[in-house]
């Protein structure tokens, strides 16, 4: 379903002759792996290991310096610019900092994704109601993000990622800003979503979460993939 083939991402800088900064920064180098439909895969590594870069490459937010990335049969970086939104609609994304639209209520944040896809109003209404119920926020739909706790914001973000039934959900450090209780709830939600048949990619450096999951783990170090285990542990 998702395939990375010898993918590298190198940022080049224009540096002064006497600058101490290196002229390039290797974010990801020679990374290859495949993810099958319905898998739950965790990407682990220290900060700066390249987890977020890999996810950005998959979302076509960044272009690889070398290598190919496939989503299904499509080469992500050969997709026409105007058709990139179609790729992104197949992927639901959950961020560490939630990235909710601050001027919209929880309900509207979730509904926005369906509006983008052109769903009829009645469908939006019933689906948003259902998904807010799944994440336990059916009573908080009319609240703005500023009126919600961190855990609640992340639930809204998950509801938004789920609402259009994407093929894949990417969660980039979704528990990074949460306390252990909310962390547990969010991971349980992701497991539930996976059990319903959605492929989940979780990027995290939370050791307990990874060891508790007992799912496939890809370990990155300094931009390289150093380990790929089917029932992996957090080893760094």
């Amino acid at each position: 379903m998702i395939k990375f083939e010898k993918v590298s991402k190198i940022y080049l800088f224009e540096t002064e002759p006497q600058s101490r900064r290196p002229p390039k920064s290797v974010a990801v180098e020679g990374v290859s792996f495949e993810i099958q439909t319905g898998e739950f895969v965790s990407l682990v590594g220290r900060s700066g290991a390249g987890k977020t870069t890999l996810l950005k490459l998959l979302l076509a937010e960044e272009k690889p310096t070398a290598g190919q990335i496939y989503f299904g049969k499509e080469n992500v970086h050969e997709i026409e610019r105007a058709k990139i939104p179609n790729l992104r609609r197949k992927i639901g994304v959950v961020f560490q900092d939630y990235k909710l639209l601050s001027a919209k209520t929880a309900y509207e944040n979730v509904a926005y994704v369906m509006a983008v896809m052109g769903a009829p109003n009645q469908v939006i209404e019933s689906d948003v109601h259902d998904v807010l119920e799944i994440v336990g926020l059916s009573e908080r739909g009319h609240h703005f993000p500023a009126q919600l706790s961190g855990g609640e914001k992340q639930r809204v973000a998950i509801a938004r990622a789920l609402i259009h039934r994407p093929e894949v959900i990417i969660a980039d450090e979704p528990t990074g800003n949460l306390d252990p209780y909310n962390t547990h709830d969010i991971i349980q939600l992701l497991i539930k979503i996976h059990d319903l048949g959605t492929t989940v990619i979780l990027a995290t450096h939370n050791k307990e979460v990874i060891n508790h999951l007992g799912k496939r783990v890809l370990t990155l170090e300094q931009g390289r993939l150093i380990r790929d285990e089917q029932r992996g542990k957090f080893i760094l």
């Binding site: 609609r89 994304v93 990235k99 909710l100 639209l101 601050s102 983008v116």
Partner: peptide, 16 residues
């Protein structure tokens, strides 16, 4: 700009 980034990432077209 953050709002626009979120819109892009959830698959909104440029015109939307």
């Amino acid at each position: 700009r953050d709002e626009i980034e979120v819109m892009r990432l959830v698959g909104a077209s440029n015109s939307f």
